[in-house]
């Protein structure tokens, strides 16, 4: 499976992302060299996960685990096989949200193994190029993991290249900004404020002409 995953990224994902689209990445050195770590990013397109996974070298690829909604990605047989084996997702059963420990059990296990977890605190894919309010799920996940570093990453451009609900891929450059790592604080409000602040200051680094 690892070979299949590498081939998929080498032959399909990377050519599309780096040749057809083109990626400008700032501060690539800022990405974690090893786990455990959490990457938080804004979410506008399915390509977000493929891009974040492509930023890591092939020998680390199998350690990158995107958190994904079980009710969406495990609903059909084929998608389920692809999500679990190629994308290596950590399925999250959203309906279990009342029991936090049970909900995040898989994530805790992955982090304990030293893997790098990708999380979209916005929940689902938002409107193109709009930052949504972050849900506090990330706080509930991280409050027991004070030593695990959080890396904020801001992605811009997929909302133009491949927005939700339009199958036509238009080649356009994509911008990625990797921020400084930080750690979870003990209180929800200051932590969420810090997350918001870090993400919006990354977003403000680019000078983009937005589409109307």
């Amino acid at each position: 499976m690892r070979l299949l995953q590498i081939l998929f990224f080498l032959l399909i994902v990377r050519p599309i992302l780096f040749i057809i689209l083109g990626v400008n990445i700032r501060n690539k050195e800022g990405l974690p060299k090893k786990g455990p770590a959490i990457i938080v990013a804004n979410h506008n397109s399915h390509l977000d996960t493929l891009l974040l996974m492509s930023l890591f070298p092939f020998y680390m690829l199998h350690q990158i685990r995107p958190i994904a909604a079980a009710d969406y990605f495990l609903r059909k047989k084929w998608i389920s096989w692809f999500s679990l084996n190629i994308m290596n997702i950590l399925p999250l059963e959203r309906q279990k949200w009342r029991k936090i420990d049970q909900l995040f059990a898989e994530v805790y296990k992955a982090l304990a193994k030293g893997e790098i977890v990708i999380l979209y605190p916005e929940g689902t894919r938002g409107e193109p190029e709009q930052l949504q309010r972050y849900k506090s799920g990330i706080y509930h996940l991280m409050k027991k993991l004070n030593e695990v570093p959080i890396y904020p990453v801001f992605i811009h451009g997929f909302g133009k290249a491949l927005p939700k609900g339009d199958p036509v891929l238009v080649p356009l450059f994509v911008d990625v900004f990797v921020g400084e790592k930080f750690f979870c604080r003990n209180d929800r409000k200051p932590f969420m404020e810090e997350l918001n602040h870090r993400m919006s200051s990354l977003a403000n680094m680019g000078n983009f002409s937005e589409w109307d």
Partner: peptide
């Protein structure tokens, strides 16, 4: 040529509704 056009299309403001015309232009 493709690289130059892609760069130009990334930089210019555009109407979201006319996204597919960019594809046609490529």
């Amino acid at each position: 040529s493709f690289l130059a056009l892609k760069e130009f299309f990334t930089l210019i403001p555009n109407a979201r509704a006319h996204r597919r015309v960019l594809f046609f232009a490529y």
